[in-house]
């Protein structure tokens, strides 16, 4: 079932000063998110990621296009009805945005008050939520007494209070250290699997996408330039922007500077092998080389694992009889994608 669907959605902000240009933050975006999936939205600063998710919970009205959440076109609703819709969409933020005037307990109580949940039910609901995020012992702490990771856990508990169907996470781990990031991501994965909540994560860290997303959407200048299952996009990025993002995660093909460095120490023929199909085992490929009496050495690259499926690029230096090397290159090329390093 499609839970979120955007059809030709655009958002243009009026010029911020007189005589300035209007800002086309989101341009003609089509996107659907299925119930139960985790979608990662990546893009450089200013690509329009935050604006896109703020359209989904109608914090900003779309300039044009249609935007369906759970079957309802948000662009047809008034403010009162949108407030109801927002109860079904939780949101967490990079800066956590906890209410400083309330304790952890009070923060989680806030959305319950907004939703008009009877006071008598608060106690149980809040305890359950704090247990779920592992902060039961911090119920009466003030926000400034918490670490970043704990603050984000409160943010998550608060976002889940009204049992939403969707959770929007805008750079939710960008202010956290790597270890805490992993913990928070694990919690988000638990939100998805145990509660069945659909999650949209915005990030500029490919690691985050790799760890929890099923699907990735790449944005550039307000447009979606590429999208697909994480493994497909990571192992075979098409667009320039996507390639740059993927390169932050996997040492792909050596660039010009790296080639120069390799050349200095490696006199043999350099060949990059791209593995992405599990049906071809590395050992079968190496057997083709060894079998022809060609020596090789791994000089560059790496293999990444995305949810049990691996892909990556390995650059080999091949040495030996020129004819045998030619033969080996041809045989290997029949098994996997190869690129000759000039």
């Amino acid at each position: 079932m499609t839970l979120i669907e955007l059809r030709g959605v655009s958002k243009t902000f009026p010029p911020t000063r007189k005589g300035g240009e209007p800002v086309h933050a989101v341009r003609d975006v089509d996107l659907s998110v299925e119930a139960g999936e985790i979608v990662g939205i990546v893009g450089y600063s200013g690509a329009g990621k935050s604006t896109l998710v703020r359209l989904v919970n109608a914090l900003e009205p779309a300039t044009s296009g249609q935007l369906f959440v759970d079957g309802t076109d948000l662009t047809t609703l008034g403010e009162r009805q949108l407030q109801k819709v927002r109860l079904d969409i939780g949101m967490i933020f990079q800066q956590f945005n906890l209410l400083q005037s309330r304790t952890v307990w009070g923060n989680v109580a806030y959305p319950l008050e907004v939703a008009g949940v009877p006071k008598a039910e608060h106690q149980r609901r809040i305890s359950d939520l704090l247990n779920f995020v592992g902060l039961a012992d911090k119920a009466h702490a003030w926000p400034e007494e918490l670490s970043g990771g704990q603050k984000q856990r409160v943010g998550i508990a608060r976002a889940l209070a009204t049992s939403p169907k969707i959770l929007l996470a805008d750079e939710a781990t960008s202010a956290l250290d790597p270890e805490t990031t992993v913990e928070v991501l694990r919690l988000l994965a638990k939100v998805n699997t145990e509660l069945g909540i659909t999650i949209v994560v915005i990030t500029h860290e490919m690691d985050v996408v790799k760890t929890i997303a099923d699907r990735v959407v790449v944005m550039e200048q307000g447009r979606i330039v590429e999208q697909g299952p994480v493994f497909e996009i990571f192992s075979a990025p098409r667009e320039q922007a996507t390639r740059r993002f993927v390169a932050t995660l996997v040492d792909a093909v050596p660039d010009a500077v790296e080639i120069e460095g390799l050349r200095r120490t490696h006199g043999g023929r350099l060949l990059t092998l791209s593995f992405r199909d599990e049906s071809v085992s590395q050992s079968a490929v190496f057997a083709e080389i060894i079998g022809r009496g060609v020596e090789f050495e791994l000089v560059f690259g790496g293999i990444e694992d995305v949810r049990g499926r691996s892909f990556g690029h390995l650059t080999l230096e091949l040495r030996g009889d020129a004819a045998a090397v030619d033969e080996a290159v041809r045989a290997v090329g029949a098994l996997v994608e190869t690129t000759e390093v000039a």
Partner: peptide, 15 residues
Amino acid sequence: VDPGVLEAARAMGAS
């Protein structure tokens, strides 16, 4: 006052 906190409240459905 941090505008982010106001935005969070709006996102939680507050008028």
